[in-house]
Amino acid sequence: MTSEWGAENLYVSYGKIVALDGVSLSAPPGQVTAVVGGDGAGKSTLLRCLAGALAPDSGIVRRPDKHRLGYLPASSGIYPDLTVAENLDFRAVGYGMPARLARERAAEYLERAGLTSAAGRLAGQLSGGMRQKLAVIAAMLHHPELVVLDEPTTGVDPVSRSGLWWLIARAAAEGCAIVMATTYLDEAERCSSVLVLDGGTMIASGTAEDIVAAMPGSLRPAVAKPDGDAARRAWRRAGQWRVWDPGGAKAGQGERQGGDPITPDLQDAVTVAALAWGGAA
């Protein structure tokens, strides 16, 4: 058994709906782990289990005690009626941090996130991006060992997103284990490892390279949407059709039929995993 934070074989159901069906994840220190999936994939349920906000029906969760854990729920957990500085003060007291250390850290993070001039503003009056930056700062002000962030960047504009990524990288560089949910694969590609959920099931996991290498079959370009059964295995990307052939040889291997196979990337591999999981093979 490793000392890494994470979860093994989690099952969670809400009535008849299975929200997590045997999901495992490890969160090594100093690394960012992405949990990817659309709405309803089970991302929030997994993160709530990791943060201790929800007890799974079965399975094991390894997490530090609550003073060494940071959690940004999907609802951000920021008090709109307090100012930016008061929100962080309040959180620091909750974490049991010495006042001076809390002030120094808050000042550094606010400055790097471009929020210094907003310190006196009510959190409820911030833009979406500023509020998310404040929420992430609040989740990691106490230098926790594990930080769990539920979609910190959804709906956030690119400039605020880059501020959020600086905060995340800073914490990881200090040895914190970070788990973040996202719906965007370009973001997942920036993480050390990726777990892809669909309907509560793990459909792919590993580094981005692992997931691409594990893609079954091959992809071929097509000039138009194919007919019949192949239509379900086809999609259009950047103006070009691509068709997944479940039994096909990978790029660079075997004989060619039709066009040259396309070298897949993470987006292709995750799309194929969703097709295979949905029974399109």
């Binding site: 990817v36 994939a41 959804t154 719906t183 949407k225 999609w235 259009r236 103006g239 995750v270 969703a274």
Partner: peptide, 20 residues
């Protein structure tokens, strides 16, 4: 306006098919 926010990659590909 942000047509595929919160959509998984396969769902996103299908929405873009509709747009195209």
């Amino acid at each position: 306006d942000e047509p595929t926010s919160g959509v998984d990659p396969l769902g996103r590909a299908r929405l873009w098919e509709t747009i195209a």
